[in-house]
Structures are given as structure tokens and as C-alpha cells.
């Protein structure tokens, strides 16, 4: 017993702050959020148990489905676009570009600033009816739409904002590309493999773990994104709910209407969606991700 304590004392002492945080701020909240999702609760009166009512309501809730579809569209379009762009730029930067440090820093800057309200504010102004984007389109003779008030186009602004922040997956791709030995390319070139063949036969398979990693990460990030949508949509998901991100809907249910029970149910659905997406990514990864030190 004494020995047991001695062996564990230091480790658990150092872990203590995290352990408290883990239970008080992660596990506890997740569990109580599950409980709250079966209640009607306004944060003032005691929660009253209503069973599955929140979930039943959700199935019939048009805005819930709208929020889901907006969020899915955003994830499904912005993540691949961002990754493709990040990979393309990383490959151009990869070998022998002068002033690479400069480009790297410049391309990363938007990722650092992207979460700020300043950028969200800027974005809103860029896509105003007479904003910079439409002015630029006008120069090339295109009559740009009314991005912010036309529900057909509003999501585009956020997708562009997401792709604009391609910097961090790019940096991770760069690190991954660095790890591919140059000799492989030379060997392939000797075997008369063309550029495309080299890309598909060497770069892509060897980079698969990094791609997978970026994919999972960006997906989670995209599901979680909030402040851009919140500010650009005026806090409510406008116009016509076309920017009603799941997180925005959840926030409003909880903190504008104080429907904490229903919002908790929404939170759990979000958690499950992210868990399912991550699990699917991991599960499919064994078919397309091969790690280098793996024996087959």
C-alpha cells in the first residue's frame, strides 16, 4: 500500500489540475448535458423531466434540419477545398523555393487571424453589395450577387473565409512532404514515371497519414466553427437561416431563448455527429492510409 502510494504520488500530483478540470469541466458537463437534454429547463426554475420530448420535437423542427444541412454543406465543401488548396501550395513550396520562410509566414497569417472578430467584420464588409468583391467582379464585367442577403450565395462567403485559412494544414503538409525521401522521386523519374504518375504513386500514398490527420482535424474544426458565422449572419443565421450553423442555432436556443434543455439535446447531437464522423474517418482510414513502419 505504502509502495503503491509512493509510486503514484508524484504522477497524480502533477496530474491533479488536469484531473479536476477533466471531471469538472468535461466529463461532468457532458453527463449533465445528457441529463438536461431530457428536461425542460430555462436556467432559472428547476429542470423538469420531459423524457424524449426534446428529441421528438427536434425531428419535427424545421430549423434543426436546416441547421444540419447548412453545417453539412459547409463541412463537405470547405474541408476538401481547403485541403486541396493547402496541399497544392505546400507542394509548390516544398522543394527549392527561395524566400520560403516569407511565403510560409504570409500564408499562415490568415489562419492566425481567421478566428478573430476583426476578420469576421472585415469579411462582412468585403461581401457587402458594393463591397470589395463585387467591385472587383465589376472590373471583369461580372455583376456580382448580393452575397450577404441572398440565401443562395451567403454560405459561399463563409466557405471562402475557411479556405482563406488554409495555412495550418499547409504547414502540416509541408512537414509531411519533407519526410518523403528525394530518392524515391529520382527512382521514379528513372523509371520514366511522369509528373502525375509520381504524384499518385509516391506523394499521395506516402502522404496519406498526413492527409488523414488533416482531414479529421479540419472536419472537427469545421463542425465547431462559430464566430465567423455568428458575426456575418448578424447573430441569427440570417438571411433566411442560410447561415444557421448548428453552433449558432444551439447558441441562440440556449442563450437567446433560454431553452437549455433543448439546446442540450442539440449539443449531444453535435457531439454524436462529430464522434461518428471521426469514427468513420478512422474506420475507413485502414483502407487508404498506410503507415510507413507497418508490415503487411
Amino acid at each position: 500500500m505504502n509502495k503503491f502510494i509512493r509510486r503514484n504520488l508524484a504522477g497524480y500530483t502533477f496530474l491533479l489540475p488536469w484531473l479536476i478540470g477533466f471531471f469538472a469541466l468535461a466529463v461532468g458537463p457532458i453527463v449533465s448535458s445528457l441529463y438536461l437534454s431530457f428536461t425542460d429547463y430555462d436556467a432559472v426554475a428547476a429542470p423538469s423531466w420531459i423524457g424524449l420530448e426534446n428529441y421528438e420535437f427536434m425531428v419535427k423542427d424545421r430549423r434543426f434540419w436546416k441547421a444540419l444541412s447548412v453545417t453539412f454543406s459547409f463541412v463537405v465543401i470547405s474541408v476538401p477545398a481547403k485541403l486541396v488548396f493547402a496541399l497544392a501550395v505546400a507542394m509548390i513550396l516544398d522543394r527549392g523555393v527561395r524566400a520560403i520562410g516569407w511565403y510560409r509566414a504570409l500564408f499562415y497569417l490568415p489562419s492566425i487571424l481567421g478566428g478573430s472578430i476583426a476578420v469576421a467584420v472585415l469579411w462582412r464588409q468585403l461581401f457587402e453589395n458594393d463591397g470589395l468583391v463585387n467591385t472587383l467582379l465589376g472590373v471583369v464585367g461580372v455583376d456580382g450577387p448580393n452575397w450577404l442577403s441572398d440565401p443562395r450565395y451567403s454560405l459561399t462567403t463563409l466557405i471562402v473565409l475557411a479556405v482563406w485559412q488554409f495555412g495550418s494544414p499547409m504547414l502540416i503538409f509541408l512537414a509531411g512532404l519533407r519526410a518523403i525521401p528525394q530518392e524515391l522521386y529520382e527512382a521514379a523519374e528513372i523509371d520514366a514515371a511522369g509528373k502525375f504518375r509520381r504524384f499518385f504513386a509516391i506523394t499521395l500514398p506516402l502522404l496519406a497519414p498526413v492527409i488523414f490527420f488533416n482531414l479529421v482535424l479540419q472536419m472537427i474544426e469545421a463542425f465547431k466553427s462559430f464566430s465567423g458565422a455568428f458575426v456575418i449572419s448578424g447573430g441569427k443565421g440570417a438571411p433566411l437561416d442560410s447561415l444557421l450553423f448548428f453552433t449558432v442555432y444551439l447558441y441562440n436556443e440556449a442563450f437567446s431563448y433560454f431553452r437549455m434543455g433543448y439546446a442540450s439535446a442539440l449539443a449531444w447531437v453535435l457531439l454524436l455527429i462529430i464522434a461518428v464522423f471521426t469514427a468513420v474517418a478512422f474506420w475507413t482510414s485502414k483502407y487508404w492510409v498506410h503507415y510507413e513502419n507497418e508490415r503487411s
Binding site: F22, A254, I274
Partner: peptide, 20 residues
């Protein structure tokens, strides 16, 4: 478990934390 918390969106714990 620590690595799993990387995945949890802030929105999920937000409401109970707020109540707390």
C-alpha cells in the same frame, strides 16, 4: 481520455458549464 477531449466541441460543455 485527454486526447479524446481534443474532439469535444466547446458548445457541448458550454451549457452545463454556464449553469455551474
Amino acid at each position: 481520455l485527454m486526447m479524446m477531449t481534443l474532439m469535444i466541441p466547446y458548445h457541448v460543455v458550454l451549457i452545463p458549464q454556464y449553469i455551474l
